[in-house]
Amino acid sequence: MSLAFAPTQKAILDRLRGDGNITSLLNKADKQSGIYDYVTESTPYPYVVVGEPSIDPFGVKNNDVADLTVTLHIWSNYKGNSEAYKILSAVHEAFIYKLAVTGYKTIKTSYSDARVFTDIDGIHRHGVFTLKISLEKEK
């Protein structure tokens, strides 16, 4: 199976940026709607970053199937956890339905981890949502 990183990242970005519940909670200083795959130190809070993908391939008879996980990072500078909790909940809701990934049949969309913690700087809240997508390469 070819690595599905690029089409999966695009599908995730499109889903997040197209979800009004999420974008209404984020900084909308630019056309990215507070959802990025790269940020600088000057990126205004709150925002979501589509982070690290990993893939676990396995064959099923003649089919190429893989479980792809992608870590989504929620960043907030709100004093307390409630802003990060709201964004994390909205992200969760956005992925209740299967994600359409170009060139692949999506078997299942789920998640394996969701949490919020205070960053090492003691100021920022960092939410982590690990999205899991089971994909089969289209023939």
Rank of each mutant, 00 (worst) to 15 (best):
M1I: 08
M1T: 11
M1Q: 04
M1Y: 08
S2C: 11
S2K: 15
A4D: 06
A6C: 06
A6P: 03
Q9F: 08
Q9S: 10
A11N: 06
I12V: 11
L13W: 06
D14P: 02
R15D: 05
L16W: 00
R17Y: 04
R17H: 06
G18N: 02
D19M: 10
D19G: 13
G20Q: 08
I22F: 06
I22Y: 00
S24Y: 04
S24G: 14
L25P: 00
L25E: 01
L26Q: 01
L26F: 05
L26Y: 04
N27F: 04
N27V: 01
K28L: 06
K28G: 13
A29P: 15
A29L: 07
A29H: 15
D30Y: 03
K31V: 15
Q32W: 09
G34E: 03
G34Q: 05
D37Y: 13
Y38I: 12
V39P: 07
V39H: 09
V39E: 06
V39L: 05
E41T: 12
S42Q: 15
P44F: 07
Y47F: 14
Y47M: 01
V48Y: 05
V48A: 03
E52M: 11
E52G: 10
E52C: 08
P53F: 12
P53H: 12
S54T: 09
I55T: 14
I55M: 14
D56W: 09
D56T: 15
G59N: 13
G59A: 12
V60G: 09
N62D: 12
N62I: 07
N63E: 09
V65K: 03
V65L: 04
A66F: 07
D67F: 10
L68C: 09
T69P: 00
V70Q: 00
L72Y: 01
H73C: 05
H73S: 08
S76C: 10
S76L: 05
S76A: 06
N77G: 04
N77T: 11
N77M: 12
Y78F: 13
K79F: 11
N81F: 10
N81M: 12
N81V: 14
S82W: 01
A84P: 10
I87N: 00
I87C: 03
L88N: 07
S89N: 12
A90Y: 02
A90K: 00
V91G: 10
V91Q: 04
H92K: 15
E93L: 09
E93C: 06
E93W: 02
Y97V: 14
Y97Q: 11
Y97S: 09
K98L: 05
L99P: 07
V101I: 07
G103R: 03
G103F: 04
Y104D: 05
Y104M: 11
I107S: 00
D113R: 15
D113K: 15
D113N: 15
A114W: 07
F117W: 13
T118Y: 02
D119E: 08
D119N: 07
D121L: 13
D121Q: 02
H124W: 10
R125S: 06
H126C: 01
G127F: 02
G127V: 02
G127R: 00
G127C: 03
V128I: 15
F129M: 04
T130Q: 14
L131R: 00
L131K: 01
K132H: 07
I133E: 03
L135E: 02
E136I: 12
E136R: 15
K137Q: 12
K137L: 12
E138V: 15
K139I: 08
